[in-house]
Design a protein around this nucleic acid. Structure first.
Length: 781
RNA sequence: GUCGGAGUGGCGGAAUGGUAGACGCGAAGGCCUUAAGAGCCUUUGUCAUUAUAUGGCGUGGAGGUUCGAAUCCUCUCUCCGACACCA
């Protein structure tokens, strides 16, 4: 028997696949393109961990399955290498981010290659390359052109440790961030859901009034919401997006007061008849957690439009200034919070049933008008940091903000030594005159560049558009080639973590919609089919998260599992199989060393089927025993369906069952062996290839063979097991020829003859007989 | 607080109205071997008993629907996730 040497064999096939261009499809002319995308990672210093391998393998299996189903699978890989995460790491080890990225991406590539994924290594993307960020800057210019980019002073989240502003979406509870909360001096605080911390470092954020660049994502709120209906996404992710957009239909009602008109947003105009006070956000303190509602009578009143009564205005701490109009109508009888407040301060409580007609009345009498409010805020994209794409805008004292000409892109990020953030409200580039002192492109006078850089999420908001065009001639003059894009996009399957539910996935959809509106995608205005798409990810699967010892893997916890050691010891195939077998793809499997041995054992058993061994007695005169034949077809069906539903764990289990049957029966054909190796190919690509080409002596790669099809006629076993129940309790079973098993009369009479069953029937005539063809007889007595 | 998801052997997990625990890990026994390892073959939810068998119990808990419920319904407990005084 040949010994399977995974170290040599895996490397051999990885190199061969690449030199044969097996995973490099013709993106321009492909007739059956399948864009299989896994969210690109940011290259961290620790390298790839088992959680990455878990997710990427899940994506790879699906891609390989599609390939065997005749699709031209395009599966790219790249690096989200710009931004705060990469930069923070570089600062920590006191190196320039540029140098760190060179090293970490190289390490990622080595690790990724070792897992044997079907990536197209000729088309990778690194967001910190000028080649790439030139187009990120171009994207900014497009936003500006469309009036979707603007700068304004706003109260924004500021991380005192990262010394930069953050988007709303990057601020979360310590638990959600997976970090221990810290104050601005780095002192660890008691963990509490009441704290709002920086996603990256866990430091409690502050609010600062700063002049910042925003993208007007709110213009797209309704489309981002309605678009969710037409895409096939994991339910929990759609729900998270829906909540984040937070559409509320209501009215803005005007109240007359001594100080003029006050506007109030409410979703319940039908409760206007029970309003007893107005509450403002005057005492609200940003960032402070409200433990108790506090209020102070303002001394002022408004007039209730309905009754003409004077009702008091209270300044309170429980109304958020950023939502609606920042003033609410207090309706104690229909809102628990208002009730609590009214009770505490002895404010009137009026009991009146809600009146639907009020919607009309208010509008007719012009007391107010219908208004839809969103939770979604504009996307804050500027960062006072070094490691990002410079914002391509120039501020001229005469002309105001002027965009950099497209021909002058990229605005290169200069190599500087003092790249650490200072927290002055300006980025490190603001210390470099040679960078920011420029001439105004419009009037030629002295002007200054913007010195902030863009948020990482801008980089990652369009990378999927770039991938297929990488290497194309046109990629030098365009962000993405129109013909290639038309052929390859939208993404057929997007595979990624649920933690990106509201961040990346919302931004990417938004940017894609803007590109669509610009006519840059497959848009009717371009002469393309009317099937223009503005959703980039019609199908998205949210995979779970691998944990270790009950917690998310993180360097600070010291529970990061490096896949290298398992690839070294067992090989990539065994590791892949193990990662997939641990549980369902959308679950939270806990990595353990025990268990991987079982996968190693399984693969060795598979190997022995093909290379012969005294452990398996393959009988001569090869035919498939009936048992083998039905099991084989059941397995084809099960594996096919399970892969389609990302239930890889049960797919692998059924492959094991098949192998167990083959060992037991020892009677099967070469055709059966070929089917087995094809079914295993997506999970264990190296061994499958070795068996296919070296043992079975086939000339083409197994990964471009046709996926096996099951035949209905073989699915059924020749014999059927009929279960006999008395009053729904299992009392016996018998085996009959499958053909007879649907004959109710016959089955009932056999069942009655069963000794054990007869005992339970006690000779009495059953009240009722229930018969499920081919499965079960149940007597009710 | 609101919205989601989940609770099944020693462990990871199967089963979405029809034999609960597939498959794997772990454990026990046997074969092989000078030996060890590997491999192969059994057994493995739990309790009772007259023990290769028979029966009871058993999917967080309590009810219900049904001939039949892990699965459907009602209430309840616990854990996890998202959002959060969103008006």
């Amino acid at each position: 028997m040949k010994v399977y040497n995974h170290k040599k064999i895996e490397k051999y096939w990885q190199d061969k696949w690449e030199s044969d261009g097996l995973y490099t499809p013709d993106v321009k002319n492909s007739k059956k393109p399948f864009y299989n995308l896994w969210m690109f990672p940011y290259p961290s210093g620790e390298g790839l961990h088992a959680g990455h391998a878990f997710a990427s393998t899940g994506s790879d299996i699906y891609g390989r399955f599609q390939k065997m189903n005749g699709m031209d699978v395009f599966q790219p890989f790249g690096y989200d290498s710009f931004g705060i995460h990469a930069e923070n790491y570089a600062i920590k080890i006191n190196e320039n981010p540029r140098e760190v990225i060179k090293r970490t991406t190289k390490n990622y590539e080595r690790q990724m290659r070792s897992l044997g994924h079907g990536y197209d290594w000729s088309r990778t993307v690194t967001t910190s390359d000028p080649d790439y960020y030139k187009w990120t800057q171009w994207l900014f210019l497009k936003m500006w052109e469309r009036g979707l980019a603007y700068k304004k002073k706003a109260a924004v989240n500021f991380c005192p440790s990262c010394k930069t502003v953050l988007a709303d979406e990057q601020v979360m509870t310590p638990k959600a961030a997976g970090k221990d909360p810290k104050d601005k001096n780095g002192k660890v605080l008691k963990n509490s859901d009441d704290l709002k911390v920086c996603e990256r470092c866990g430091t409690v954020v502050e609010k600062k009034n700063l002049n910042q660049w925003f993208f007007k994502i709110t213009d797209y709120a309704d489309r981002l919401l309605s678009g969710l209906e037409k895409i096939d996404w994991s339910e929990r992710v759609s729900i998270a997006q829906r909540n984040w957009i937070g559409k509320s239909k209501g009215m803005i009602i005007k109240f007359e007061s001594e100080m003029g008109e006050l506007e109030v947003f409410t979703t319940r105009p039908d409760t206007l008849n029970a309003v007893t006070f107005l509450a403002t956000s005057k005492l609200y303190k940003e960032g402070e957690i409200i433990k108790e509602k506090i209020g102070k009578f303002s001394g002022k009143h408004v007039t209730d439009p309905l009754t003409g009564r004077k009702i008091p205005i209270w300044d309170t701490n429980y109304v958020a200034p950023g939502y609606g109009t920042g003033i609410i109508m207090g309706v104690p009888t229909h809102d628990e919070r208002d009730m609590e407040f009214a009770t505490k301060y002895g404010i009137d409580i009026v009991k009146k049933d809600p009146d639907k007609k009020l919607w009309d009345t208010i509008e007719k009498k012009k007391w107010g008008k219908k208004h839809t409010n969103f939770h979604l805020r504009d996307w804050l994209v500027s960062r006072q940091r070094y490691w990002g794409a410079p914002i391509p805008m120039i501020n001229c004292p005469k002309c105001g903000w002027v965009p950099v000409a497209e021909a002058d892109l990229p605005v290169k990020l200069p190599e500087i030594k003092d790249y650490k953030p200072e927290g002055t409200g300006k980025g490190p580039l603001a210390n470099h005159e040679e960078f920011y002192k420029v001439k105004c492109p419009k009037c030629g006078g002295g002007a200054e560049r913007e010195t902030d850089v863009m948020d990482t999420f801008v980089d990652s908001s369009w990378y999927f558009l770039r991938y297929p065009s990488v290497g194309a001639e046109s990629s030098k003059s365009k962000a993405f080639d129109p013909a290639i894009t038309k052929n390859m996009l939208p993404v057929d399957l997007y595979f990624g973590g649920a933690e990106h539910s509201v961040l990346h996935l919302m931004y990417a959809r938004f940017v894609n919609m803007v590109m669509y509106d610009l006519g840059l995608l497959d848009h009717p205005a371009q002469g393309g089919p009317a099937s223009g798409w503005d959703e980039p990810f019609p199908k998205f699967f949210a995979h779970g998260l691998m944990i270790k010892d009950g917690a998310k893997m993180s360097k600070s916890r010291g529970n990061v599992v490096n896949p290298d050691k398992y690839v070294e010891k067992y090989g990539a195939d065994t590791l892949r199989l193990y990662l997939m077998f641990m549980g369902p793809m959308d679950g939270y499997p806990d990595f353990r060393d025990s268990g991987i041995e079982g996968m190693d054992r399984f693969l060795r058993r598979v190997w022995k089927i093909f290379t012969g061994n005294r452990d398996i007695h393959i009988k001569p005169n090869q035919v498939d025993s009936p048992k083998v034949l039905s099991k084989l077809h059941q397995t084809i069906q099960k594996v096919t369906k399970d892969i389609q539903e990302f239930k890889y764990n049960t797919a692998i289990a059924s492959l094991m069952e098949l192998v167990n049957v083959l060992y037991k029966e020892g009677k099967f054909t070469n055709t059966t062996k070929e089917v087995l190796v094809k079914l295993i190919a997506p999970f264990a690509p190296h061994m499958a290839e070795e068996i296919w080409q070296e043992v079975l002596d086939q000339s083409d790669s197994i990964h471009i063979q046709t996926w096996p099809k099951w035949k209905e006629e073989y699915l059924k076993e020749r014999e059927a097991i009929i279960i006999v129940q008395v009053n729904g309790k299992f009392r016996g079973q018998f085996v009959v020829d499958a053909k007879e098993s649907t004959d109710q009369k016959k089955m009932v009479s056999i069942a009655k003859r069963d000794k054990k069953v007869a005992k339970w029937l006690k000779g009495a005539k059953p009240k009722k007989e229930i018969f499920i063809a081919g499965k079960l007889v149940n007597f009710v007595v």
